[in-house]
Computed example of a mutant assay.
Amino acid sequence: MADADGSRRDLRGGALSAPRLRPGTPERAGLDPAETDRLVHEVRGLTSGERPWAAGAVVVAGRGPVLAVAEATGWAVRYAGYDPVTDRGVELPPQRRVAMTVDTPFDLASLTKLFTSVAAVQQIERGTLGIDALVGAYLPEFRGAAGHGITVRQLLTHTSGLRPELPLYDCADAEERLARLRAEAPVGAPGSYLYSDLNMLLLQHLLERLTGRGLDVLIHEGITRPLGMTATRFGPCPAAAATEDQRRPWAKADRGMLRGEVHDENAWALGGVAGHAGLFSTGPDLAIFCRTLLAGGSHGPARILGPDFVELLLTPPGLGFALDQPWFMGELAGRGAAGHTGFTGTSLVLDPATDTFLILLANTVHPRRRPANSGPRAAAGTRIARAVRAVRGA
């Protein structure tokens, strides 16, 4: 039998499928069109002027199974490089620039962590991985983690005590990089929060040891292929929005202007597939990912997680996901909103309380990285929260 929204259920009421995401108007989604118009106008303003917040941006938002906003602005490629003398980007001639489109892929940076986390929870659901199991039980040669009793849960919640990163990009070869990871011990007390890319790198090694498959294969077979996310994959991705003219001293490696190759220096050193960074995706593909989690793990006939395990993923403090962070969620934060940001300028938020999602993708590091400014992300979240409230009359 089917519900009014088109989802199918078995005779005991269990969900067999969830309605697919479909394009529609803000009104059909239950969002105030005046607020969504303001959202689009404000995002367009972020890419204008000589020193914009980002060279280009894509904003995608929806509620329920309706994709209500999908807009692109600015440039996927605007600069040939960065001039440190003038502290300005070297502009490409207009005919050589590449306009941003809704379907432009972006280097997701740390949004990759969300996919790694889902892949881990899939193994927890199958019973092949224990959430409170010791990392050393799976990776005994990782002496630092094994010797300090770090658990899978601590990796997923950034409470392992591992430092934020290691300079793996400066190691001589893959053997030295692996040796450093294996020896790395916590610098903080396990159980206390310290955000670390190393958590997801260890989790990647654990998942690959457990399943005998690479992380890229796990994410493709377990998440993106069943959901039809055909634009989401590890690089190279030649059509992606450009990122940084990556050079020392502002960067950690000398690689020149990057487009289609992972920006994160450690992910690059590791071959482009890493638990903390390396995925490329588009706004529409990420909308499917958000909608799937809001619908309890299903999208159409595809199911990547059961509702109980989506709840586990999003229960405070969140497994991989950050919860209720006003600094990038704005007024969407407060009742269990979940999401993440990425260093290259990416972010997503899903709000189970209002069945709403917001994706803002921007190449803020083009032509070079700047001090982080998540004010525009928070402002966008506030616009969507107000779009919901205006319809509810709250």
Rank of each mutant, 00 (worst) to 15 (best):
M1A: 13
D3E: 15
A4V: 14
R12P: 00
R12Q: 11
A15G: 00
R20V: 14
L21A: 10
P23S: 02
P26G: 00
T36Y: 11
V40C: 03
E42F: 01
V43C: 03
G45F: 09
L46W: 11
L46N: 02
S48V: 15
G49M: 09
P52W: 03
A54V: 10
A54L: 08
V59P: 11
A61R: 00
G62D: 03
G64K: 00
V66M: 10
A68F: 04
A70D: 10
A70P: 00
A76M: 05
A80T: 08
T86N: 13
T86S: 15
D87N: 15
E91W: 14
R96L: 10
R97G: 09
M100K: 00
T101E: 15
V102D: 03
T104M: 12
L111W: 12
K113Y: 06
L114A: 05
T116Q: 08
S117T: 04
A120N: 08
T128Q: 05
A133K: 03
L134S: 14
P140M: 15
R143C: 01
A145M: 12
H148L: 12
V152W: 02
L155G: 06
T157M: 13
T157R: 07
H158C: 12
T159L: 11
R163E: 15
P164H: 11
L166C: 13
L166P: 10
L168P: 07
R180H: 09
L181V: 07
E184I: 08
V187H: 00
P190L: 01
S192R: 02
L194I: 14
L198M: 09
M200A: 04
L201F: 06
Q204N: 05
L206F: 00
L207I: 04
E208A: 07
R209P: 02
R213N: 13
L215Q: 01
L215F: 06
D216F: 02
I219F: 06
H220C: 06
H220A: 15
I223T: 06
I223Q: 08
R225H: 10
P226I: 12
G228Y: 00
T232D: 10
R233F: 09
G235F: 07
A242L: 15
D245Q: 05
D245L: 04
D245T: 06
Q246I: 03
R248Y: 03
P249Y: 03
K252V: 05
D254Q: 02
R259T: 13
E265F: 09
A269L: 04
V273R: 11
A274E: 01
L279I: 07
F280A: 09
A287K: 00
L293N: 08
L294H: 07
L294D: 13
L294C: 08
G300T: 10
I304V: 15
I304K: 08
L305W: 07
P307M: 12
D308Y: 03
E311K: 12
P317S: 04
G320F: 13
A322Q: 05
L332C: 08
G334Q: 03
R335I: 05
F343S: 05
F343P: 08
T344G: 01
D351Y: 03
L360M: 02
T364W: 02
P371M: 07
A372P: 06
A372D: 11
A372K: 12
A379T: 15
A379F: 12
A380R: 02
T382V: 14
I384T: 02
R386D: 13
A387H: 11
G393P: 15
